[in-house]
Design a protein around this nucleic acid. Structure first.
Length: 558
RNA sequence: GGCCGAGUAGUUCAGUCGGUUAGAACGCUAGCCUGUCACGCUAGAGGUCGAGGGUUCAAGUCCCUUCUCGGUCGCCA
């Protein structure tokens, strides 16, 4: 009950029959079914209620109002002669006595029909986002977002985490993206940077003695948009724990996320705690991706050795990866389409061949395997009716292309993907270092502030030449769900000595650490707790829960 | 920034080999209709075919330039 209404438009039921009520909402539709006889649909946030028009006077009043105007209707509830079981309020209707226009819609033609706004052109939807959001199907994703955020807060609080806010106007931070800059009025020529993540602040909080921190944190990165990535700003469930290991972080999310996915998601949660852990190297070998979609039952096989000396130039001296797709009955045209799709995404065209119903190899590059058919069949455990997609190139290229082939084939060839479930996994053991493509020298692979597995010892061994630095892994991890990278996190390097040594490996030193991150470095010199954290993307999570493929569907004002 | 695709009525789209007056559905307007709920029926209004240039007797359609949007790669924890 407010000044404008006694009930909402989603509230009235049979038991309200006979009551005098006042409703307020948008005039969604008018169905004229006779002379001076019509049904008006009134809509507010909570639902719709039918208003019945039976007199010439009421008919005249409603005819003078454009759809989507806001109106107030005072009247009496009565049972419908022909109820509609599909609607929560379908048993009743309101007989109006007084109608007032609260907010007139000046246009009788809208940019799109409210209830079909999702079919409209996206730029029109965004321009008229306030109309788009009147569509319950659009609005419900935003409601879902609110519920998920509330549930996350509740779960994190229940796990003993405290929500602490961190600055928005700050100094440039260590992440790799471009910063957004804000001119500083009092210091002409200088700028604030908007945080790409609250990374440094939360680590300082750990050093201060706060034990468990979290925040639904806005992050700002000046990068181009993607279907699953908002341009500019997005939100993370940022968290950090003191005196904690990688497994401690995993345990929290394995406890927090599945119930929320189960309750608010479109599908069932197929993974139970503990989620599967997959090493980075293994993920790249087996799935051709560091964000595998475990709903797909296909894997990548290495056939490099087998493919030498075939007389097929693209395979010579290259890494060759194959993805066998069993039970495949695609036509030649469909296979070409699949390969073209892979080429668009991976930038490299895959090769292919297939086994027919008798198991004989045919098509594509099959002829080059003459004399080696059995070897290939054994290597791939090849049965009949199987399409083999093949990628060749430098190791990383071949892996990446194979990963795209795997996801494309999984999505397009029936029987290899059970779409309607959530499959979580952790990708662990990311390499600490790599050989830079441009420099040709050793560089940090990811975040330089992750703790190397093996600590100072392993770095010293590498320095003495006993350990290949490329084999050093970091306590750095990604949480992946259905092929979407939900989150990445790490056990942080809290020890200045290890930090300096890690930097020395890439020809940097203490001065560079100090220069780049003075606050954190200094703080760690006063006794820091070992700590670890992670930051799942809220937008991507809601996207998965809503079953949407565009991140703009779950953001109120994209 | 590279590549691919799209742009035609308020909206979503069709438009054949370049050929008469550019069509459909929804929406809108008017009329009919007393139980609809994606109401139904009849009629009508509504178009700079994204923009500019070119080829041609003739361009929505072919060519060039350009703009906008989407996807993707680069980029991005």
């Amino acid at each position: 009950m407010t000044a404008f209404r006694t009930h909402t438009c989603g509230e009235l039921r049979a038991e309200h029959a006979g009551q005098k009520v006042t409703l307020a909402g948008w005039m969604e539709n008018v169905r004229e079914v006779g002379n001076n006889f019509a049904f008006v649909v009134l809509r507010d946030f909570y639902g719709t209620t039918q208003v019945v028009v039976e007199t010439a006077e009421m008919s005249r009043i409603f005819k003078s109002i454009n759809k989507e105007s806001t109106i107030q209707v005072e009247g009496t509830v009565r049972l419908r002669e022909s109820p509609n079981k599909k609607l929560p309020t379908g048993e009743i209707e309101v007989v109006p006595e007084k109608v007032a226009v609260l907010g007139r819609c000046r246009y009788n033609e809208l940019p799109f029909e409210i209830n079909r706004s999702r079919d409209a052109d996206e730029s029109a939807r965004l321009k008229y986002r306030y109309l788009d959001l009147r569509n319950p199907a659009v609005k419900n994703n935003i409601i879902l977002r609110c519920q998920v955020v509330a549930a996350l807060r509740q779960a994190m609080t229940a796990h003993g985490f405290m929500e602490i806010t961190t600055p928005i106007l700050t100094a440039s931070s260590p992440e790799g993206a471009r910063d957004y800059l804000v001119p500083a009025r009092k210091h002409p020529g200088k700028f604030y940077a908007l945080p790409q993540a609250p990374q440094q602040f939360k680590q300082l909080l750990m050093t201060s003695g706060f034990d468990k921190y979290f925040q639904i944190a806005p992050c700002f990165r000046d990068e181009d948009a993607r279907g699953d990535r908002s341009p500019g700003e997005f939100y993370q469930l940022d968290m950090e724990m003191a005196f904690a290991s990688q497994e401690d972080v995993f345990a929290v999310l394995e406890d927090v996320l599945p119930p929320i996915f189960a309750r608010y998601g479109t599908y069932d949660v197929a993974s139970s705690a503990p989620f599967r852990r997959i090493g980075y190297t293994e993920a790249m070998e087996t799935y051709g991706s560091d964000k595998p979609d475990l709903r797909i039952d296909l894997t990548v096989k290495d056939i490099s050795a087998l493919c030498q000396g075939l007389g097929f130039e693209p395979f010579e001296g290259r890494t060759v990866k194959a993805v066998p797709v069993s039970g495949c009955h695609l036509t030649r045209k469909q296979i070409d389409k699949l390969c073209a799709d892979v080429e668009v995404q991976a930038g490299r065209k895959p090769y292919w061949l297939r086994s027919d119903e008798s198991g004989a190899l045919a098509g594509g590059v099959a002829k080059f395997f003459a004399g080696k058919e059995d070897e290939l069949k054994n290597a791939l455990s090849l049965g009949p009716d199987t399409l083999v997609l093949i990628a060749a190139g430098k190791k990383t290229e071949a892996q990446k292309t194979a990963g795209v082939m795997l996801k494309m084939a999984g999505a397009q060839v029936p029987g290899h993907m059970d779409e309607k479930r959530y499959e979580f996994c952790w990708i662990v053991d990311f390499p600490m270092y790599e050989i830079g493509e441009e420099s040709g020298e050793l560089e940090f692979c990811h975040n330089p502030f992750s703790m190397p597995n093996g600590g100072l010892e392993v770095l010293l061994s590498a320095e003495r030449g006993e350990v290949d630095p490329l084999t050093i892994t970091a306590f750095q991890y990604d949480l992946v769900c259905n092929g979407v990278e939900l989150s990445s996190g790490a056990v942080r390097n809290h020890d200045p000595d290890i930090m300096i040594k890690a930097f020395e490996m890439v020809r940097l030193g203490e001065e560079d650490v100090k220069a780049k991150f003075p606050a954190m470095y200094n703080a760690f010199c006063y006794g820091a707790p070992p700590h670890a954290g992670i930051a799942p993307g809220v937008d991507r999570m809601v996207m998965l829960l809503a079953g949407e493929s565009s991140i703009r569907e779950i953001i109120p004002s994209p």
